[in-house]
Design a binder for these strands. Structure first.
Lengths: 338, 338
DNA sequence: CGTTAGCACTCTTTTCTTCCGAGTGCTAAT
DNA sequence: ATTAGCACTCGGAAGAAAAGAGTGCTAACG
C-alpha cells in the first residue's frame, strides 16, 4: 500500500499535531500545518481516503481524526532516519554517565534515571543476563557467631552476596573448607551449568558437615540463579502519573505490568539489534494500550542488555529516540572496558 | 477537654462509619449505629457540640459531618488499647517471615511486602542505620584486567560492595596490600569515625600507588557512607493508586514524598519506642494531607529500624495496627540471632 | 480531473435551569 | 434532657438548550 507524497505529509502532520495536543485533528488545522498549500476541503477528501486505508480513525462521526498505529509507524519510520540530538545534550549525557562509570551497576542505574528525567517518561534498564557468565570466585566469611556471608563473583563483573544464618555455629576453618570446595568445583564453570545436583554432589563430599553447609549451599544456588538472570531497574514511574494520557487505572495497570519482572524482561529481550518502537495498541497485552515502548540494546556480544523508554503513545519521539540512542551508545562504550 | 461517654461513643461511631463509607456521616445513621438508644435529634444536638469542640466538621452547611484529626486521635487511642489479630493471621505472618529469616535484608524486604499485601496500603521498612556499627572486614578482589571489587562488612551484619574501574590495571599483590592497610587501619573502627582525612592518611602511607588506589578509596568511602545510612524499602505503592481516596495528583505527590529517601527516613526515625500514628493533616507537610502513617520500631538497642504503613486517613486501622505490631515483633525476634 | 467554496447536518461539550433529597437547625412539646 | 416536626440550605442529578467543531456532500471552476 503506497501512499502519495501529500498523503504521507498529511499523516505525518496529523501524528505530529496529535502528539502535541492529544486531541483529534481536523482538516482545517492540517491545512494550516501544510502551509495552506491546499484548502481544508482537499484535505478532507484525502483524510477520507486515509481513514479508509486505516491510517486515521474518527472517535465519532463529527470530530477530527486520530492517527492509528499504522500512522504512527509511518511517522516513526520517517523519524528514525533523520532525528538527532544537540551536541550540548550529548555532552551533558556523557558527563553524567562518566561520573558513574566506575561501577557497571551504578552506571546502568544512572542511565535509566537520566533517561527518565530528560524525557519525562519512564525508563528501564535490563542488566546483561549472566547466562553466558562463569563463576570467577566464591567467598565465604563469617559475619557473626551464627551467621556467614557468601559472595559470588562472575567473570562478567557481577557481584552477588547474601548473609546466611547458620543454626549450628560457624567455625572459620569449616567455612574455609567449604569455600575451597565450591571454588575448585565451580570456578570457571558457566552459571547455566550449575545445577542443584552438582551442588548436592559437593555437599556429599563434605558429608560430615552437611547440616552446617545446607543454608550456605542453598544461598549459593540462589546467588547463581540471581546472577544468571538479568536484573531490571525502573525509573521515573512518577512521570507517568503526571501525564494527562494516564488516567489512574491505566497508569496503575501499566505500572503493575512494569513492576512484574518477567513481563518487562520478556518485552525487553524480545528485540535484538537496533532501536525498536513497540506500540501498545499493536501488542496483545491490554496493559500496554495507550502506551509505547522504545527499546534498544546496549553493550557488545554476550555482555549486553536493554534500555527502554515507556510512555504514552503520543510521547515526544523526536527527542526521546535520539536520547535513548545516545545513552545506549555511551553506556556501551563505558562498559567496554570491563 | 473531657468528653462524656455518649459523646465519645458518637465520635467513635462517626469515625468508624466514615472509615467504612468515606462519606460525611449524618445524625440518622449515627442514631442507628448507637442502637437507636436515642433519637437522631438528640444526636444532632450532641453533634453540634462536638463540631464546636473541633471533633467534627461539615463540608457544607447541610451535609453530614466529617471527623477531624482530633476525632481520629480519640478513636485511635481507644483502638490501640484493645485490638488484636487472629491466631491464624499471626501464624501466617510468622511462617512467611521465617522462610526468609536467613538473610536480614531479605527478611525486612519480605516483611514490608507482606504488610503491603495484607493491608492493601503501602508499607516501608527502614533498615537499622549503621551509625553504631564497626567495620568488620574489608576485602578487595580483582574482577577483570582493569577492575576490582571492594567489599565492606560491618559487625552488624551488613554487606556492601562495589565494582570499580582501575585505569592503571590491577596487580593482585598491590590490591592485597591496600586491603591489608585498610583492614589494619579500620577494622573494629566505628563507621562514624571514618573520615575523608583518615582515608587520605592511608592513601599517603602507600604513596607510590596513590593513583591506582584512588578509585578504590573513593569507593570505600561511599561504601562506609552507604552502610551507615539506613536503607529504605517501599512496597505496595500500587495499592495507593487503587484507593478511591487518592485522586491522581494526591497519589503522585505522596509517592514522590515516599520516594525521597531523606523525607521518609526523617519521618520514620522521628518516632522512638512503640507504635505511633501520624495523621497527615496534623503534619506540616502538605504531601501527607489525607494520608496517615503508622510507624513502629523493631529490633533491639542500637540495632533497630522502623516499619511503617502508609495509607489514606481512613484506612482500616483495626486490622492494620495489630498486623504491624505483630510483624515488628516477629521481625525483632528473628533478627535477634544475628 | 483535481481543487475549492459553501452549506446542511451530526455529535459532543458546555451552560443553565430545575428539581430532588439528605441533613441540618430550630422550636415547641413531652 | 429528649424528641417530633418542619422550614430551610445546599449539593448533585437530570434535562434542555445553545454553542462549536468538524464532517460530507454538492456544485462550480481552472
Amino acid at each position: 500500500m503506497e501512499l502519495g507524497t501529500r498523503k504521507q505529509q498529511i499523516v505525518a502532520a496529523a501524528v505530529d499535531a496529535y502528539i502535541r495536543t492529544g486531541e483529534p485533528v481536523g482538516s482545517k488545522l492540517l491545512a494550516e500545518l501544510l502551509g495552506n498549500a491546499v484548502s481544508s476541503a482537499t484535505i478532507r477528501n484525502e483524510m477520507a481516503d486515509l481513514a479508509a486505508a486505516g491510517y486515521l480513525m474518527q472517535p465519532h462521526t463529527s470530530a477530527g481524526r486520530i492517527p492509528t498505529a499504522l500512522a504512527f509507524r509511518l511517522y516513526l519510520d520517517r523519524l528514525l532516519s533523520h532525528c538527532s540530538l544537540s551536541e550540548e545534550s550529548k555532552l551533558a549525557i556523557d558527563e553524567e554517565l562518566l561520573s558513574a562509570s566506575g561501577d557497571p551497576e551504578r552506571l546502568l542505574g544512572r542511565a535509566s534515571d537520566l533517561l527518565a528525567d530528560a524525557t519525562g517518561v519512564a525508563a528501564a534498564v535490563a542488566t546483561p543476563d549472566g547466562k553466558g557468565a562463569c563463576v570467577q570466585r566464591v567467598e565465604i566469611f563469617p559475619t557473626g557467631s551464627q551467621s556467614a556471608a557468601i559472595l559470588l563473583m562472575t567473570d562478567s563483573g557481577a557481584l552477588r552476596s547474601r548473609v546466611c544464618r547458620l543454626e549450628s555455629g560457624c567455625e572459620p576453618t569449616v567455612l574455609a573448607r567449604l569455600s575451597v570446595s565450591l571454588n575448585t568445583e565451580f570456578s570457571g564453570k558457566a552459571l547455566s551449568e550449575i545445577s542443584v545436583a552438582s551442588v548436592q554432589a559437593v555437599s556429599a563430599q563434605l558429608c560430615e558437615n552437611g547440616l552446617l553447609y545446607m543454608p550456605l549451599l542453598t544461598a549459593f544456588l540462589s546467588l547463581v540463579q540471581e546472577a544468571s538472570e538479568s536484573e531490571i531497574r525502573l525509573s521515573g514511574q512518577l512521570n507517568l502519573l503526571q501525564h494527562p494520557d494516564y488516567p489512574i487505572d491505566r497508569a496503575r495497570s501499566l505500572l503493575a505490568f512494569l513492576s512484574h519482572r518477567e513481563s518487562l524482561a520478556g518485552m525487553l529481550t524480545a528485540h535484538p539489534g537496533g532501536l525498536h518502537v513497540v506500540l501498545g495498541s499493536e501488542s496483545p497485552r491490554r496493559e500496554l494500550d495507550g502506551s509505547s515502548i522504545i527499546v534498544t540494546r546496549y553493550g557488545h556480544g554476550g555482555n549486553g542488555g536493554s534500555l527502554c523508554l515507556i510512555g504514552p503513545v503520543r510521547m515526544d519521539y523526536a527527542q526521546a529516540i535520539p536520547r535513548l540512542q545516545h545513552v545506549a551508545q555511551t553506556v556501551s562504550r563505558l562498559l567496554a572496558v570491563f
